[in-house]
Structure formats: structure tokens, C-alpha cells
């Protein structure tokens, strides 16, 4: 385990365990998992399918029961899901009967109950413009393309002003062109907001490009942190400078070697 001391810890997983009971005894996905995430840090969790990284994220989100251990958000144990931990889901999970704006608004209303209607509207429109949907406020979610839906998903998460942003393979369902576009959108909005973020991903390049730290998980059951890579590329990052950076390939090699085992 890695102890972080210099800045405030925003999120901490302490001895986190997830086990599913089966007739032949518990199936342990995660055991005594330890993780600390600093304020304004962007970390990625990478690992093979079924290693329990999504389970970890949904537990932090409060959507999955914790078998043992704790998740501390700003030193307070979490209790269920809440808008202080906004989630960008793999499938955008927009309400198809609402417009893009309404999809963002429904969350904003919950988080800013005392704001005036105009203020709320401004918040929604600001984030939707940030993700490049300035001309699609009033389009029904069902009429948006997959990439546009996920843009709304990102806007919805940021508009909640969460303490932690949880991204569960946010670009996993997109084609590679759209994926790259959306990574740029995400990093662009994120660099302005600096919200502590945890992203689960399969994609090595995506992890390096976006994160300060990449957690590599061993394959389950009993998954744990196998290795950590600190990505010391300076921010704000731009795709072509990152890719041309000599260290990029070192990080890449590091991650790929780990995943090969």
C-alpha cells in the first residue's frame, strides 16, 4: 500500500472487501483493498475483464453493497449513493424521454435546490456547451448519437459539482474516433474543474493520457493492487505532445508488460 502524505486525501478505500455468497462458499472478488486518492488527482484503474475493477467503482459509488471495510469520502464513511460521487456510466444511461438539458437539469435541481431557475439553467447550459452540445440543448436524448449521449453524461456528472467523479469505462461503447474526441472533451472540462476522479478502463493509452496515477489490478478473485505507475506528464495535456513525449512509451510498456502476465 502506498501512503500519500503531501496533500489532502479526498477518497480512501480501507480494507475494502467484496464477496458474493455461493453454495460452495464465498466468491471473493476483492479482499482488503487499499487505495488513497488525493484531492484533484485523476487516477485510472486498469486490469483484465472480470478483475473486479468495476465492482470497486460501483462500491465507491454506493451502488453495490460493501461486504467489509470502508470507503471514506473526505474522511466520512459513505452511506449509499449520492450526488457527491457523480458517475459517468458505460452506457450513457440518459433518460430517453427527456431533452439533453432536462437530463442535466434533473441532477442540478437536486444539488442546488436553492438556486433560481435561471441560475440552474445557466449551470446546465454551461456544462453542455463545455462538452460541445451548445446547439443540442433541446434535443431529445433518444435522438442523440451514442457519442453525444455520453457527452451529456459527462456534462451531467460535472454539473453536480461532485467531490469525486467516477468513470466506469466511460468510452467503452464508443468507436475509436469518437472515443478520442471524448477523451479530449473530458480532459478539457476536467482541467478547468480539477475534480478528483477515478476512472476504470481497459485502454492503456486512455489511462496514460488522462491520469496522474494508473493502478494496475491483478486478475481476480482476490484482486489487489498489482502495480502503480505515476504518470508525470505535465498538464494541461494535449494529445500530440503526450504521444510524442519519450516517457509515454515507457509508461505504455510498463502497463502492457503488467497486463501481459
Amino acid at each position: 500500500m502506498e501512503i500519500v502524505t503531501d496533500t489532502k486525501v479526498m477518497l480512501e478505500c480501507k480494507d475494502l472487501t467484496k464477496a458474493y455468497p455461493t453454495p460452495t462458499g464465498d466468491f471473493v472478488v476483492l479482499e482488503d483493498f487499499q487505495l488513497q486518492v488525493k484531492e484533484e488527482e485523476f487516477i485510472s484503474i486498469i486490469g483484465h475483464s472480470g478483475c473486479g475493477k468495476s465492482t470497486l467503482l460501483t462500491m465507491v459509488a454506493g451502488l453495490n453493497e460493501i461486504t467489509a471495510g470502508q470507503v471514506l469520502l473526505d474522511e466520512v464513511p459513505i452511506n449509499g449513493a449520492g450526488p457527491d460521487r457523480a458517475v459517468v456510466f458505460q452506457s450513457p444511461s440518459l433518460f430517453p424521454w427527456m431533452t439533453a438539458l432536462e437530463n442535466v437539469m434533473i441532477g442540478v435541481k437536486q444539488v442546488f435546490p436553492h438556486a433560481t431557475k435561471a441560475q440552474r439553467n445557466d449551470i446546465c447550459k454551461y456544462y453542455l456547451s463545455k462538452v460541445g452540445l451548445a446547439d443540442a440543448f433541446h434535443k431529445k436524448a433518444i435522438d442523440l448519437s451514442q457519442g453525444m449521449k455520453q457527452r451529456v453524461g459527462i456534462a451531467r456528472a460535472f454539473a453536480l459539482k461532485p467531490k469525486v467523479l467516477l468513470l466506469d469505462e466511460p468510452f467503452g461503447m464508443l468507436d475509436s474516433m469518437t472515443r478520442v474526441e471524448l477523451q479530449d472533451v473530458l480532459i478539457d472540462v476536467w482541467s478547468k474543474e480539477k475534480i478528483t476522479a477515478i476512472m476504470v478502463t481497459h485502454d492503456v493509452d486512455e489511462a496514460i493520457f488522462l491520469s496522474d496515477r494508473v493502478i494496475m489490478m491483478t486478475s481476480g478473485p482476490y484482486a489487489k493492487v498489482g502495480d502503480v505507475a505515476h504518470i508525470k506528464l505535465k498538464r494541461p495535456r494535449e494529445r500530440h505532445t503526450v504521444v510524442e513525449h519519450p516517457n509515454f512509451y515507457k509508461y505504455r510498456q510498463h502497463l502492457l508488460t503488467f497486463l501481459d502476465h
Partner: peptide, 21 residues
Amino acid sequence: DKDYLNVSKVLRLGVFSNVFK
């Protein structure tokens, strides 16, 4: 859809909003 219910949980929608929205 379970995804919709998850969104509703994350947003902590009240019972009324959850049912009607």
C-alpha cells in the same frame, strides 16, 4: 432499466420524483 434506477440513486431523487420522472 437498472441504469435509470442507478442514475436516480446517484442523484438521490425523492420517491415522488423517482416514480413520476
